[in-house]
Design a protein around this nucleic acid. Sequence first.
DNA 1: CTGAACCTTAAGTCTGCCTGAAGGTGAGAT
DNA 2: ATCTCACCTTCAGGCAGACTTAAGGTTCAG
Lengths: 221, 221
Amino acid sequence: MASKILLIEDDKNLGDQIVTHLKRDGFEVTWVQDGLAALDTDPKQHDLVVLDLMLPGAHGLDILKIYRETAETPVLVLSARNETSTKVRALALGADDYVTKPFWPEELLARIQARLRRPLLHASDVIETGALRIDLSARVVENAGQRVDLTRIEFDLLAALGQRIGSAVTRQTLVDRVLDPDREGTGRTLDVHFSRVRKKLGSEGARIATVWGVGYRLLPS
Amino acid sequence: MASKILLIEDDKNLGDQIVTHLKRDGFEVTWVQDGLAALDTDPKQHDLVVLDLMLPGAHGLDILKIYRETAETPVLVLSARNETSTKVRALALGADDYVTKPFWPEELLARIQARLRRPLLHASDVIETGALRIDLSARVVENAGQRVDLTRIEFDLLAALGQRIGSAVTRQTLVDRVLDPDREGTGRTLDVHFSRVRKKLGSEGARIATVWGVGYRLLPS
DNA sequence: CTGAACCTTAAGTCTGCCTGAAGGTGAGAT
DNA sequence: ATCTCACCTTCAGGCAGACTTAAGGTTCAG
């Protein structure tokens, strides 16, 4: 399976050159040319990000920071700046490598491959709130340390609420996200599932609150 | 726990300086000053290796190659040579990073930390859980001390689950990782293999749980 | 070339999840 | 208070996904 690379680089010449090289080596490349577009792209959909620091729209380090809040995708920073302080900052923010321009494409390739060589450790992103523990990557829910068996939809619904603790999530959002995306928001299916989740969660189930006429939300502990 | 760094560097001044910096940052450092001594040191006993290329006794790249035959420890190469070809060779041989002299200690530190940030998938090559013992390097499985003969795919599937005990592993992941990487997740092939693994594992086979609509997981003992 | 071990596909069966219906409950409106 | 409508819960039917067996194809050693 070809690895998917997200390239964020505003320089047309350099970007073109990199894309060509990467494609020649069998990578699938998505090329984004400014900071705002980068923020609209999901790093999780890619295996590695090559990120230029000087960008129109948003600074590379800010993009890196935002990416790191949601994804563990390795980020290789590209920059003309050779100051140690910039390198240190980028690496401290979660960059996995830092390459100074100018560079030879071969080196970039070699470094990309070195990053991809190590199997991605899924950051087990875990939501802990009250007695609940929702491990999104393992798809495991614990209530006061006790494992709770949830079906696929039940888990996804709980996770959807858990990712926005305290805020209401509309029925339509939940239907779109967990059930068939092209389905009318009607029907009592959602209710049935939540009913079961509440029951399975015991006393913690009471924390799934109905927002009348809107949807549901998970009450903060 | 302090991370253990193995420093292989013959230059006394530079070595001293690096050791000082690393210790100040809480690392435990073993400093080895020539190639032969490096070959007598076990990289597996350390969390990361900082390896100079020009050494008396043995060339750094040879050391890297030998280390890579037995250990997965990250290796950060240090060198005065700035040629792309050397960098590419080092990275292709399994180095995880390449820093050109001269450098500021801060950069080295930041890069070391970037490497250590991503924990290795498995600290040891042996997974023990319940009555199961999965030796990843020997590719041997024992159930209550009894050897179990698994085929290549059967072993890889069990290992894939064993490396993330308790986590659901999606069908697609398993197909990508164990079967042909570019194949559709459809088909019953996985099921057939798991069916056989379960049977061969006897009562422990029950610990391979189906995650309906998602994949499989190895239940914690 | 032959046989054995292994992988894959196909087919039949089974299981457990999803969902719509229906009656009950309770919140909000008047 | 009472009405209304959204929501809760139970239940059973249907079906997608999973299990297992068998057979055909592939690979590899001898």
